[in-house]
Each structure stands twice: as structure tokens, then as C-alpha cells.
């Protein structure tokens, strides 16, 4: 019986088995093929050329243009993760104190954009943010013309935050939910102001939820291609847009694979940085 919790041998592996098998066959194997592909050459007239080359990575990592795109991708994902956190955290906090009915409404409403196909939803944003759009009309009416900000980085962030906020809200709410209510109460009874309780007790205790939510948002933001393309306009290029061009328009799968591997590395780096920051903080211990 005790082994259920104390066994260092069989149990964790048994728990991991079903997911690992599925994962190994349908993710790791195709992904390794993808990784191998990224070292192949490609010609329009010949298709994939099965000869080992660093060409794709050289092009991607040493060329100024692609480096700037990698930078833009990292920047967009980071900004989106931060903005969703800032916007989502108070909502998650509200969920812990709201009435059941209000809770249901908030959850349903913030999830609703995810029910609409990404293209249709993005066209909706284009109408709101674009020329003669909703925002511009409202601002022009109150005397501030020229507020069309479609085709900017900000527009992409708006579009992404719109769908990614729920991931942070629910992740943080899950974390907040598991805080023992006695802890903040104790802090308050010892004379800590509400803000101090929030910043010194609640915030640190919800760190696992914050980190999980931000990682998910970071990853998803780096991989979407419709939103940056439509809302960011032609000037705004991120890796996923270029990868779509290479994979689907040009069928240059080796180069697309190299971009996909690079994207994965970016997310891993993001995850690493996040873990480092968390472990440096004095509350990081709770994560280990």
C-alpha cells in the first residue's frame, strides 16, 4: 500500500507508460524524421535531396534578415506572455471571490473567441482595428483621428492576447484555488495590508500557475501564423509565417523543418529562462 506513494521504481513508469508510448510513436518518431529532414537540401526541380548539409541552419541563424525575424518572434511571444499575465491575473483573482454565477459568465465569455475559427475571428479584429474600423470611428467622433493601428505589432498582440488570456486565467486560478485560505488570513491578522498580502503571500504562492500559463502562452504565440499574418501586415514577419511559406507554398520541407526546430529551441530557451528566474526568486523552492 505504502508503495503507491513511496515506490521509487515501478509506479511512476507505469503511470507514464500509456502517454509515453503514444508520444514516442506519434510525436517523437515524426519529430526525429523532421529533425533529420532539416539537414537535407531541397531543389524546386528535384524535391528533397538526401545529402547532409548545414545550409538551412546557416541561412536561418547567420543571415541578418532571418535573425531579425527570430528576434521578432521571441519579442512577440514574450510581450504576449507578459500582457496576458497582466490582463489575466486580476481576472483569476476575481474568480476566487466572485459569486458562482459571475464566475460562470466570466469563464464562458473569455473562452468564447476560441470557439470561432481563427481566420474568421482575425477578420473580426481587422474590422475593429482597421481603417474606417470601429476604434477609428469612435476616436474620430471624439476628435482623435488617425487611430488605425491594424498592421502593427500591437494589433498582433491584441489578437493573440484575445485568445490566449483564458490559458493564463485558468492556470492561475487553479493555483490560487489551492492556496490554504488560512495563510493569507494569518498574514492579514498579523497586520499586513491587503496589497502586502497580495504581493508577499498570494502572488508567490500562485507562481506555479503563473509560470505554467506564461509558458503555454509563449509557446502558442510563437507557433501561430494566421494572426501575425493578417493583423501584423506584410512588414511584420515572424518565424511561423516564414515556415508556412516554406512548408506549404514552396514545399521546402527541409527549410521549414529547420524553422520548426528553431522555434522549438526558442520555446525551450524561454522555458529555461523562466525556470532560472523562478529558481532565483526566493519562492522558487515551491516548484521543485
Amino acid at each position: 500500500m505504502r508503495r503507491f506513494l513511496t515506490s521509487r521504481h515501478a509506479t511512476p513508469w507505469l503511470l507514464l507508460l500509456p502517454a509515453s508510448v503514444l508520444f514516442a510513436v506519434f510525436f517523437v518518431a515524426p519529430f526525429i524524421t523532421l529533425g533529420i529532414n532539416s539537414f537535407y537540401d531541397y531543389g524546386r526541380m528535384t524535391g528533397i535531396i538526401h545529402v547532409f548539409t548545414w545550409k538551412n541552419y546557416e541561412k536561418l541563424w547567420l543571415d541578418e534578415y532571418y535573425l531579425s525575424v527570430i528576434g521578432a518572434t521571441f519579442r512577440l511571444s514574450s510581450i504576449t506572455a507578459l500582457v496576458t499575465l497582466v490582463i489575466g491575473y486580476p481576472v483569476a483573482l476575481y474568480l476566487t471571490v466572485a459569486s458562482p454565477r459571475a464566475k460562470s459568465w466570466v469563464i464562458a465569455l473569455i473562452l468564447s473567441p476560441l470557439l470561432v475559427s481563427v481566420i474568421v475571428r482575425t477578420f473580426g479584429w481587422a474590422i475593429i482595428l482597421g481603417k474606417n474600423g470601429l476604434i477609428e470611428r469612435v476616436f474620430t467622433a471624439i476628435g482623435i483621428p488617425g487611430t488605425d493601428f491594424l498592421h502593427t505589432e500591437a494589433a498582433v498582440v491584441v489578437g493573440l492576447v484575445n485568445v490566449l488570456t483564458p490559458f493564463v486565467v485558468l492556470s492561475v486560478a487553479t493555483s490560487l484555488q489551492s492556496i490554504d485560505p488560512a495563510v493569507p488570513l494569518a498574514a492579514a491578522s498579523l497586520g499586513a495590508s491587503p496589497l502586502r498580502v497580495l504581493s508577499r503571500v498570494i502572488l508567490p504562492l500562485s507562481l506555479p500557475g503563473i509560470l505554467a500559463g506564461m509558458l503555454i502562452v509563449f509557446g502558442l504565440a510563437s507557433a501561430t501564423f494566421v494572426t501575425p499574418a493578417v493583423l501584423g501586415g506584410a512588414k511584420f514577419k515572424v518565424l511561423s509565417t516564414l515556415m508556412y511559406q516554406q512548408a506549404v507554398i514552396l514545399q521546402n520541407w527541409p527549410f521549414a523543418a529547420a524553422i520548426a526546430v528553431t522555434l522549438t529551441l526558442i520555446v525551450l530557451i524561454g522555458q529555461g529562462l523562466q525556470n532560472m528566474a523562478a529558481e532565483r526568486s526566493r519562492y522558487g523552492a515551491s516548484l521543485r
Binding site: A126, G130, K131, N132, H151, V226, A229, V230
Partner: peptide, 19 residues
Amino acid sequence: IAAFANSPAEMDNIMAQGQ
């Protein structure tokens, strides 16, 4: 250039909205 469309549908949207 006012905008770049990524698909014919997006072009329809841009032209219909008068962008």
C-alpha cells in the same frame, strides 16, 4: 500600398470594407 492580403478571402474583406 494600403495592405497585403494573405488569401483571396482576406482580399475580399479588404475590398468590401473599402480599406
